[in-house]
């Protein structure tokens, strides 16, 4: 892979397998998943429960090591990285939006947004100010000192989006970002997520089982029983 390609490809997943031992023998959760996400691209991985989409997101998010295969993030192969190096990459290159209740309950909204700044390289005061501005950007500047228990589900997810972007990551990974929200709030949160990512040139990979959510992305990948493929039907004009 050339440097130019590496820069353009935020994420490259190459023949990723994942096998877990069970009492009945080895169970293969992923069968050679391969795909690429380009810089600024938005994509969705769709699949039913148990299809392997969460396992794939865990591997792409460097939370789980693949049994075989390679995940390249911003040109950096990750399979041989140490735990600390993977933590650094998660901190600086990836942003995460989880399915509901993903804020640290005893931290204020502003502190939750700044949480990734507590780890990895030291940050300047300008970067800290940028964290505060992110909260403004998601429309919650007034709630900076509120704790999560005083925020609605939609507001919590907006704080989570701000937190995911605070290190200006190249790739934002979202796991059922609207799963815990009502339809209207979910749509508003998804709008925000995609708009902000687009404005900052951040690639987005959404894992969902919701057709409506997947339809908002530029590309759909389908995972069935651990086998990943392009959703040709969605790609058809």
């Amino acid at each position: 892979m050339t440097a130019t390609t590496a820069t353009l490809q935020t994420l490259h997943v190459d023949d990723v397998h994942h096998v877990v031992p069970t009492v009945q023998g080895d169970l293969t959760l992923l069968h050679g998943a391969s795909f690429t996400i380009a810089a600024g691209e938005t994509a969705a991985i769709m699949g039913r429960s148990g299809s392997g989409k969460t396992t794939l997101l865990s591997i792409v998010g460097l939370m789980l090591r693949a049994t075989r295969g390679e995940v390249v993030i911003a040109g950096q192969p990750t399979s041989r990285l140490s735990d600390a190096e993977r933590a650094r990459l998660r901190n600086q290159t990836l942003g995460f939006v989880f399915q509901g209740y993903s804020l640290v309950p005893h931290l204020t909204a502003a502190e939750n947004v700044a949480l990734p700044l507590s780890y990895g390289p030291a940050v300047s005061s300008a970067e800290r100010r940028a964290a505060a501005q992110l909260l403004e950007m998601v429309g919650l500047g007034h709630a900076a000192r509120r704790y999560p228990r005083h925020l609605s589900g939609g507001e919590q997810q907006r704080v989570a989006i701000a937190r995911a972007l605070v290190r200006s990551p190249g790739l934002l990974l979202a796991d059922e970002p609207t799963g815990a929200l009502d339809v209207a709030t979910g749509e508003a949160v998804l709008d925000l997520l995609l708009d902000v990512a687009r404005a900052r040139g951040t690639s987005v990979l959404v894992v969902t089982h919701d057709e409506a959510v997947a339809a908002r992305t530029g590309r759909r990948l389908l995972i069935v029983e651990g086998r990943l493929s392009e959703d040709q039907a969605a790609c058809a004009p």
């Binding site: 998010g61 939370m63 735990d83 600390a84 998660r90 901190n91 290190r167």
Partner: peptide
């Protein structure tokens, strides 16, 4: 445990 997992996800090392 969930909060600690979130911290790990956003970049905390085991040592942190």
């Amino acid at each position: 445990s969930r909060e600690l997992s979130i911290r790990r996800a956003v970049g905390a090392r085991r040592l942190d």
